[in-house]
Design a protein around this nucleic acid. Structure first.
Lengths: 195, 195
DNA sequence: CGCGGGTTTGATGATGCTCAAGCCCGGTGG
DNA sequence: CCACCGGGCTTGAGCATCATCAAACCCGCG
């Protein structure tokens, strides 16, 4: 499982990984496997890990006062997931992270002393900076789109960028991720299908 | 000017800055001062710096097809600004970054060879990770709010979190930042003032 | 005094939500 | 084998929020 992470890091950095780096990564990351609909993180818990997804799919969501679920993020293999706020502040999370399919993770815990060591691996740090850049760009675009593009355009964008999401998550989850209701998404699909 | 940055870094990291680190920072960062309404970054240019704001205020915005300005970010002293997408990919930016007041920057360029050195200063890297965490949280909250909170709640939030923005930027800028029109903001203010 | 940017006010309309009902389909138990 | 159940998806009517367009207002400044 770790080889998939090694490959991921090397594809995203110019510095090579030494033998020592690789064995450090092997020690630092904890493999974990969950079946469908299991929680990696539960609301109220502190998020203790940054999780690399080797295989599978997850969703991150909150439950608002009226009991409605709001999906913030969808992740599949090759992505990282965690509640950075909770992880960083060591405070209870307001999110659930749930597997949608059977999912294999590699967890990097904050607590066991490896975290700082792993972060000081040049290749890992370089990858991390790129990852943060990418997440930042994606968040910025999503924010811009959420206010300036109507729902059907946001749906088309999603279908273009991440077509597999539409296969792997049901419509009401996709709708929530897009910030619309399932009814609106249904109507949008009906419209675009006609063309 | 650099002392303000040194102070900023030390306040956000557990590792100390050595004398060597400080002199490296002194060499790496380029001071720059702009008057009101000057562009730090212009649409079409590549963003060559990460900029720390020592004093002043800036806005980052795009101009859409109909010529409307859309404000993505407002920054004041003690914040960082840049177009991370352009900086990272070395591609032309779609944003303008404009000073709103007379502003002093400290620019960290990508090109002069110091960038990697500065990033490998442990205290700087630690600060950077925290900064990215914070930005990520803020972006996530803003995205959530943009879909789930009505405009007047978002305005109240902004007034609570960053009251100085309301003093330092005119209403039509604030409105655009909130993702609403100046007319809507005007009506909101009228309503809340009545209570 | 008149100009111009910023703000306010009003009328109208679009987008997408809420609520409610019906439909489709796979799974389960009689 | 079929009737029933339930989750997910669809469809419709009415409604809230907010955008658009247009006009007026306010006020500092040349």
């Amino acid at each position: 499982m770790v080889s998939s992470l090694i490959h991921y890091i090397q594809a995203r950095s110019s510095s090579p990984l030494s033998e020592k780096d690789i064995s450090l990564i092997n020690e630092a990351f904890i493999p974990k496997k969950l079946r469908k609909r299991q929680l990696l993180l539960q609301k109220g818990e502190v998020c203790k890990y940054i999780a690399f997804i080797v295989k599978g799919a997850t969703r991150q969501y909150t439950v608002d006062d009226e009991g409605n679920e709001r999906v913030l993020n969808l992740c599949i293999e090759g992505w990282w997931t965690s509640d950075r706020e909770s992880f960083h502040k060591e405070a209870p999370s307001i999110y659930n992270i749930e597997t949608w399919e059977e999912t294999e993770f590699l967890l990097l815990p904050k607590a066991n002393g490896y975290y700082e060591q792993v972060n000081s691996i040049p290749a890992f740090n370089e990858m991390r900076i790129k990852l943060d850049d990418n997440q930042h760009m994606a968040a910025q675009k999503r924010l811009y789109a959420s206010k300036n593009h109507p729902a059907h355009v946001r749906y088309d964008e999603l279908a273009r960028l991440y077509p597999e999401f539409l296969q792997r998550f049901p419509q009401h989850i996709i709708a929530s991720y897009l910030g619309i209701t399932k009814e609106t998404l249904s109507r949008i699909r009906h419209q675009t299908a006609k063309k």
